[in-house]
């Protein structure tokens, strides 16, 4: 881990930055309101495809949390997602028909927009089914958190991607537009996560939860990563390397304490397991645009066809951040 690996990672980072610049040419602005951004604006970045039904609640959730502006990449939606977003005063939208897979699963687009618009600002990068929860999020809005991170000299904020699921078969309860998906996908696994450290990028690699339990029990090493660093004080030259799991420079991945202490952290509540997933899984399999030959979606499609129920008598029902904090899925750190 000396000079050589530092130089190697620097070269890799240069490569990702070049890819991001190139990917910028794929993006056509539908509605660009970024000229009006304030230097302290908190930005949210998101790539989506055909998520119209989820959008109203998603925007509402993050507006309430204190996000000032949303920057979307619409990857060829056919359900009017892009147009609907363009009508929102606090949204900027770019569209592209280019391949999601070829754009490193959308991250090249995100890196491009982040580099252009997030320099010196706090940026939150999430999917439309990810809802950020952090200590005191019910009484302290996002600016309180970012102000504190700034004052403490912290540049990135780590989270666990917490898979949420309904009780009963995943397809049994429809989630209608504007409804809080967490009303249906209200359950989670509290303590079946395994962690290893990635020495190269220095991030933690977390797996487990209901997806490992139900879909990947026979090949646990293939279970999806649940470590995410979605909130970063962005600087030109930062890049996301693999989804929001890890970044370069790698110091941004050090969101954990190695000496026994707890840094402040949060959870991304992942409302993926809803009745739309079956359709989505079939569609994504046909498109073949997802990570690892879409093996995740293969597993879901198979499991869901069998009426998979992720719920067990040991499942926990989500109440609030305090519950997650007590269970050790997130931590207040010293932010009391």
């Amino acid at each position: 881990m000396g000079l050589l690996s530092t130089l190697r990672l620097r070269r890799l980072r240069g490569g990702w930055l070049r890819r991001a610049r190139a990917a910028g040419r794929d993006l056509q602005p539908v509605c660009d309101r970024t000229a009006a951004l304030h230097p302290a604006s908190r930005l949210l970045f998101c790539t989506l495809r055909n998520e119209r039904a989820r959008l109203p609640w998603f925007l509402q959730y993050y507006r309430d949390l204190g996000v000032d502006h949303f920057l979307f990449v619409d990857n060829g939606s056919e359900d009017g997602s892009g147009g609907w977003l363009a009508d929102q005063r606090d949204c900027s939208v770019w569209t592209t028909q280019a391949s999601y897979k070829a754009a490193n699963f959308g991250m090249d687009w995100m890196n491009h927009l982040l580099g252009r618009h997030a320099h010196g600002r706090w940026a939150l990068v999430v999917d439309v089914d990810e809802f950020l929860v952090y200590p005191f999020c019910d009484t302290r809005p996002l600016p309180a958190l970012t102000d504190w991170l700034d004052a403490s000299g912290i540049r990135s904020f780590g989270t666990l991607l917490l898979d949420m699921y309904p009780k009963g078969p995943v397809s049994a309860q429809p989630c209608v537009e504007g409804q809080n998906p967490l009303e249906i996908a209200a359950w989670f696994d509290s303590a079946n996560y395994t962690i290893t450290r990635n020495p190269q990028y220095r991030n933690l690699w977390i797996q487990g939860g209901p997806r490992a339990r139900v879909f990947f029990a026979d090949r646990p090493h293939e279970a999806p990563a649940l470590n995410k660093v979605p909130l970063v004080k962005w600087q030109r030259g930062h890049v996301y390397v693999s989804s929001t799991h890890m970044l370069l420079p790698r110091g941004l991945n050090l969101v954990y304490d190695t000496q026994g202490g707890e840094k402040a952290s949060g959870c991304l509540l992942h409302a993926k397991f809803l009745d739309t997933l079956g359709t989505k899984a079939r569609e994504e399999l046909q498109r073949g645009q997802h990570y690892g030959q879409g093996r995740e979606y293969h597993a879901y499609a198979r499991g869901l066809a069998e009426g998979a129920d992720l719920w067990t008598s040991w499942s926990e029902r989500f109440i609030n951040w305090r519950q997650l904090e007590i269970m050790g899925l997130m931590s207040k750190g010293s932010w009391a």
Binding site: N227, T258, E262, S265, M330
Partner: peptide, 9 residues
Amino acid sequence: LYMVSRFPV
């Protein structure tokens, strides 16, 4: 406790 922001050596 071993979690996202606590992973002691």
